[in-house]
Design a protein around this nucleic acid. Structure first.
Lengths: 150, 150
DNA sequence: CGCCGTTAGTTGCACACGCATCATGCCTGA
DNA sequence: TCAGGCATGATGCGTGTGCAACTAACGGCG
């Protein structure tokens, strides 16, 4: 029992650490992206995800899954970005229920401008978190793991 | 340059992985805690954090830091929980600006009831994420890291 | 051909959050 | 002693989100 309890406690601790690190990073990204480019983290993520799918276009539901947001949130997110001219919707030819989204040139331009901000903010947030003893292990693990995942 | 670019990309990938895992876990915890105990993740976290500080009591700002929330959100969060009788405020004797919070017996009882839900949801979410190839490495790293941190 | 179940996306609503501002209480210096 | 500055929480306001209900479109089956 004690062993199982330890496992439970270890998971809980891991989760708390992960949540704390996530919150710190997101906070920082949010501030800097908002300040320099009027983009929220979600908005940046959408642009980034779509831009990566060069050629492939995503439906709303796929996009929602990719950014881990509800469908309704995704709808409004896309609407906001569309109103700013950063991406455009177009209907699927074979299935008129489906809606694809595509990053416009303006969107790509803004993304290119925002990427350095994003990357440096991320690096700074990680470096800062690496200083905190309770977050350092996870930060370290994150570094070596992405290597392996590549 | 290419080396630095790799590092940037690795960080970005790590961040996306972390964000995705975080969102999945939080989503699941949110649903199950809400369904079974009418608690949000933030509310559970507050109760959990406070209950852990047995003897020590936290000020609002410290609590806000611990749960990584703004002061205003913390104020309202505490208000909600207080209205439900799960915790109580009391003023600091030596500094009447400071406000301490304390988990009530009812709060402890609810926490005890919610903890299994939380733990099993967490375990399930981690297990599920471990099945996905893009999340598995991080899940694995999380497991071994908390061991070391202990 | 037309009906019904399913799927994709949008909208009404309530709510939790962050930011800026405000009210209150502490503390230092003249 | 009391005026100004600082710190601690609370509140008004705008916004993004999830849930549930709704509309539109596809596909199968009688």
């Amino acid at each position: 029992m004690s062993l199982a309890d330890d496992a439970v406690e270890a998971r809980a601790q891991g989760w708390r650490t992960l949540a704390a690190l996530h919150a710190r990073i997101e906070d920082r990204l949010q501030r800097e992206l908002e300040r320099d480019h009027e983009l929220s983290v979600s908005e940046y993520t959408v642009l980034d995800v779509l831009a990566r799918q060069d050629g492939f276009h995503l439906r709303m539901t796929q996009l929602a899954t990719a950014v881990v947001l509800s469908q309704s949130a995704t709808t409004r997110l896309v609407t906001r970005l569309e109103e700013r001219g950063l991406l455009s919707r177009y209907l699927c030819a074979t299935d008129r229920r489906g809606i694809y989204t595509e990053v416009t040139p303006a969107g790509k331009q803004l993304l290119a401008a925002a990427r350095p901000t994003h990357d440096s903010a991320l690096a700074a947030a990680l470096a800062e978190a690496g200083e905190l003893p309770e977050l350092a292990p996870l930060v370290g693990a994150l570094g070596s793991l992405t290597f392996a995942a590549k």
